[in-house]
Write a protein that binds this DNA or RNA. Structure first.
Length: 293
DNA sequence: TTGCAGGGGTCAA
DNA sequence: TTGACCCCTGCA
């Protein structure tokens, strides 16, 4: 990992496997917004900052070296060689096209609690509304902070949400998911499950624990593990991945669980990364490109 | 202009 | 296996 510590922030060199648009718009995160100049501004890990591409390099604006090494290098999965992963996946002709299409995708390592709630909200929902709902939750119940005169809000911790009424959560636009969020907050704040501890458990066990939460089914559980626990063998199957898998591989209508088994068998420990390339490829190429989820 | 289907799933019957 | 679920958007 080659970087320079500049007065503007950390400048990452040799970034052929890091494209901000691919990273932030492949469906794994909901608090990064595209700015008019093409940079992305987001809130994560308790702070707000900007990621921007400058002459082929990636600038993490306003991040110091200590925070970069202590947190952000892990968050952006900079220790992993995506070049090798892409080469391995590209042996498959369909994956070769998908990898080429989303060549700058990286799997983020987000906060497990925030990711758990975010993907409960994602169920039967569209991306713009998911983003709006999460932002409202943060503005209503998260800690207010300020940076360069601009306010931003952390994601509310479990104990904060657990102390609310279902109606308070519903008022953020969560709809029928409000009761699931409240119950999840109670489960975690009472110490019955620690989402962070699941990182150290194998994928099948972590999955079985996540499935005990109301509002978390197979797809959401796989998303939480892939996008916050670096469990790259988790393969979330949503409608887009279902479409792309049926179209290119299975050639017929196939149950979700069967698609997942097929993919895990085919792509093994890299199934989750393959899923992200396929998802981004499907959404970009398989019709109906809209603001809808 | 209005009405209705459907969405990056999950639950309950 | 199927309908209901928040609520917003696209479309007829």
């Amino acid at each position: 990992m080659d970087y320079i510590n500049t007065e503007n922030g950390i400048l990452l060199k040799n970034t052929k496997d890091f494209e901000p648009e691919h990273v932030f718009e492949c469906g794994q995160c909901f608090r990064w917004n595209r700015m008019p100049d093409g940079s992305y501004r987001g809130v994560a890990g308790g702070r707000a900052f900007c990621v921007k591409k400058v002459n082929g390099d990636i600038l993490f604006q306003g991040i110091n070296e200590q925070d970069f090494n202590g947190y952000w290098a892990g968050y952006f999965d900079l220790g992993r060689d995506y070049g090798t992963i892409k080469k391995a996946l590209s042996k498959d002709p369909v994956m070769e096209r998908a990898v080429d299409y989303g060549s700058g995708i990286r799997i983020l390592k987000q906060d497990p609690w925030e990711t758990l709630v975010s993907f409960i909200i994602s169920a039967n929902n569209r991306i713009p509304r998911i983003m709006l709902t999460i932002e409202k939750l943060c503005q209503s119940f998260g800690e207010r902070k300020e940076q360069n005169g601009e306010a931003y809000f952390d994601f509310p911790p479990p104990r904060r949400l657990a102390a609310l009424d279902e109606q308070d959560i519903r008022a953020c636009g969560c709809g029928f998911r409000a009761k699931y969020i409240l119950q999840a907050a109670r489960i975690v704040s009472e110490g019955r499950v620690d989402p962070h501890s699941l990182e150290n458990m194998d994928t099948e066990y972590a999955r079985s624990v996540l499935l005990c939460f109301p509002g978390i089914g197979p797809k959401v559980a796989d998303c939480i593990m892939l996008f916050s626990m670096a469990k790259l063998d988790a393969f979330p199957v949503d409608v887009w991945v279902k479409r792309v898998m049926e179209h290119y591989y299975l050639k017929r209508e196939t149950p979700l669980a069967q698609i997942r088994r097929f993919a895990v068998q085919k792509f093994g420990p890299l199934a989750g990364v393959a899923q992200q390339y396929l998802f981004y490829y499907a959404r970009g190429t398989m019709g109906r490109i809209t603001g809808r989820g």
